[in-house]
Design a protein around this nucleic acid. Structure first.
Lengths: 198, 198
DNA sequence: ATCCGCATATGATCACGATCATATCTTGAT
DNA sequence: ATCAAGATATGATCGTGATCATATGCGGAT
């Protein structure tokens, strides 16, 4: 994570611990930089005057957050710790001058953003699939290893369910059904497709 | 659209017309640059050996496409015209040297990518909302004008339904219900919230 | 060895959005 | 003025994923 930033930037990172519920920044505040989530969860929300929150994103450990703040004078949403959390701040001025001074860093950052865009577009597309089974198939098809047969599972099935936009129950059932139908094989820490596709 | 690129880059753009079904590029091919969709629709897919397609994204007019190709030696998916289409190619070398020569262009590009990431994250979050009504509420809350009361509708309701990941029928019904319940007012080309939230 | 917390299941029920069908209204072209 | 195509509705039915409940398995802490 944060492999996009040069050593110069990384050493300029400032860690900060947040208690659950604590506010990292609020809309309209002057931007100080972008953050990396080290541990815990933050939520990005837009809040109306009545205090209702509209959820924009939940950032978890390893993710970067408020990238657009580099190019804007003020934040456009609120960031609030959902759990106890630790974040690392990369000050705007340092990052931007590093980009100017060292085009390679700038390119690495662009590449990281471009990859994220790709990934997110794919996820949006995945959510257009209504059938749980087809959604799982879509995920498996896009995550097979080089052999086109094995899909390594990182994290728990519950996490995967969240990533797929399914309830864990639905995922458990779907996987059980697919295994019963002989479509997949369930191994320790991975899933194997019965008929490889690559 | 493409307001991120400097004049130098824009004039280097090369247009190309595609017939429906025509392939723009295939996975593994050497990258020549990124594209902007001028008219029509392209789909980005990953194809397995059996010829099955896994849809990654559908790019429509105004969108940019294959941004990550700037930083990779080969494409990682196939791009196929779904309709007759016109695209404009911005050659990799020109774009990249422009980034080095003119940091402002680089920053504009980064900013564009960062905004896209934001937007896509928000959309993914929106898709986590299951109730059609709440999904519409989420959309309205995030798209009110400065007065916190009016939401301008660009395009048709059908388009909006697609953006929300609902069928048009579901959206029509939901809007009708919300209007009947006095939650919203339906004006020409816009929707007004009965109780403003900002 | 025991206990606790959480992941993993699986069952029963239900709400709700998808789907298919049909009708009206709007818009633009000729 | 006429016509066609597409957007906007609205009705009826159905499938399936969400929800609530309950049980078991498993790993880690003490």
């Amino acid at each position: 994570m944060a492999d996009w930033l040069s050593r110069n930037v990384r050493i300029a990172g400032v860690e900060r611990a947040l208690k659950a519920g604590e506010v990292l920044f609020r809309s309209e505040q002057r931007t100080v930089g972008l953050y990396e989530v080290i541990t815990g969860k933050l939520r990005l929300v837009r809040v109306d005057r009545a205090g209702r929150e509209a959820l924009l994103h939940v950032a978890v450990a390893g993710e970067t957050l408020a990238e657009a703040s580099l190019f804007a004078p003020a934040y456009h949403c609120d960031a609030i710790a959902t759990t106890n959390a630790v974040v690392r701040l990369y000050p705007k001025a340092i990052v931007l001058t590093e980009f100017e001074r060292n085009p390679e860093t700038a390119q690495a950052f662009m590449a990281m953003l471009a990859r994220q865009v790709m990934k997110l577009r794919t996820r949006v597309e995945q959510r257009n699939i209504h059938s749980a089974r087809d959604r799982v198939r879509h995920y498996l098809a896009l995550n097979t290893g080089a052999d086109g047969r094995n899909v390594k599972l990182t994290g728990t099935l519950k996490d995967l369910a969240g990533e797929l936009g399914l309830t864990h129950e639905a995922l458990y059932r779907t996987l059980a059904d697919m295994a019963a139908a002989g479509e997949i094989e369930r191994l320790k820490g991975k899933i194997r497709l019965s008929k490889p596709l690559a």
